[in-house]
Design a protein around this nucleic acid. Structure first.
Lengths: 243, 243
DNA sequence: CGGAGGTTTGAAAGTGATCAATCAAGGTGG
DNA sequence: CCACCTTGATTGATCACTTTCAAACCTCCG
């Protein structure tokens, strides 16, 4: 990993620390406003205008884009600590957020985010960094959508979700179950759900995963990566240390 | 258009004006550092680490992601006034930028962007807004990649490029030629180049476009939109006023 | 004028979609 | 606690879209 080397210019200016400070400030400001949304509802409620930035505290949700002819795509899965609503600060909302669990969130309205960021540059910078990171992953995911086959798409999705859940999970909790239905995998990868079933069956036959009702268990990420060898190196990073 | 209504909360705080101010400040700071890159080269030069934010002044370039097995995807086309290198401020670079023309750029190094943004919140906010907008279009493009057929992908790409070129073109300059090769359209849409040829032939037969060597002429965007009726409404917006 | 890169065309093969029926799991109310 | 009902998962057969490979062709540029 040459990553630390590459970041050195920033490190020396103390930015990583400042970013953390900005993050803490923002999260603290969001703390007081906590709400719970039941399973299978929208955040905010159906038809309501979204004028807040939300942070998932617990539970799981998806962000989905809809076309007027019924086609739709899941753009991201939201797990604890993920923010959403940021891109609506300056423009109209793009897509809906639907809960997949009982979801509790903290929130802060757009105006407060703006004034907070204006007062504390670290907040503004953390936001910039947050969006930048997501923008990069979004680019990489685009490549997988455009160029990967079904096996690669599914494997990469599962690896990504696995990696994110690993970060939050209590240490040593192996294996991890990714809470996602096959229909949602289909909506995320742009594949048809019957074909997802077949693809998962193949991955299971290879010993990468176990398939459950509404969840996929990642048996071994390294075996899973074998099913998408090339894509993995630039998208998810390696899992050498996780086993 | 309910767009103005939705933005009202921000309008009343004078943000659009402040954003413009931030933009002006940043662009002014970039002005002194002007460079020219020949056609078919990388920005920055091959193998060099990218530690600046660039703005295209004239010419055309593409940003491309590469996989180690040769697969690759064009993530965006860059025209005059477009910025790139923003997402590298906090993290390692993602993808290469290749010129398609002789390209002249202004630039500013990352540290200067950071200190500028820290000094002037409007700059930080403009950056935030800039990335947000691109993030939203990227989401919508993902949906087209995942769910659209070849005709829709090509039509949407051409419409998007058309719209962006329209903005910059001298008024009344109709029709517009989009400077892009079929190979680049293939790399952008994730389709094979022979199939691009066939798809373009179909669009030409419908009277939407003319095909040239290294460029596509948009005869009539409204006719082009007919080839991707549903996708268009949420991606490119309508072209009622352009004819 | 020659060469390189971009475009077109054809035929064959493959991947994933579609449609429909069936099956399994879990939640719910009696 | 069980039967039912809804939702999610699986399977098969068929079909369509897109890829692949190959060759030929065209344009532009040197």
């Amino acid at each position: 990993m040459t990553l630390t080397l590459q970041k050195s210019a920033l490190d020396s200016n103390g930015w990583p620390h400042k970013l953390d400070a900005g993050r803490a400030t923002l999260l603290a400001a969001m703390q007081p406003e906590m709400r719970v949304f039941p399973v299978k509802t929208q955040i905010p409620r159906e038809g309501r205008w979204r004028s807040k930035v939300y942070r998932i505290v617990s539970g799981c949700a998806v962000r989905r884009l809809n076309c007027s002819d019924g086609r739709n795509q899941i753009v991201s899965m939201l797990f604890p600590n993920d923010l959403f609503g940021l891109s609506e600060i300056f423009s109209e909302p793009t897509g809906l957020v639907e809960t997949r669990d009982t979801v509790s969130v903290t929130s802060i309205d757009h105006a407060s985010v703006l004034s907070l960021a204006a007062r504390d540059i670290n907040v503004a910078m953390w936001l910039l960094n947050y969006i930048n990171e997501h923008s990069s992953s979004s680019d990489r995911w685009s490549m997988i959508l455009a160029r990967g086959n079904a096996l690669e798409k599914v494997a990469m999705l599962l690896l990504d979700l696995y990696k994110r859940l690993m970060g939050a999970a209590p240490a040593g909790q192996q294996p991890i179950r990714v809470p996602i239905t096959q229909q949602d995998i289909a909506d995320f990868t742009g594949l048809a759900s019957p074909y997802i079933s077949r693809t998962l069956a193949l991955l299971r036959a290879r010993g990468s995963i176990n398939v459950f009702y509404g969840a996929i268990e990642i048996v071994d990420p390294k075996v899973l990566m074998v099913s998408a060898p090339v894509m993995a190196d630039f998208w998810v990073g390696d899992f050498a240390e996780t086993t």
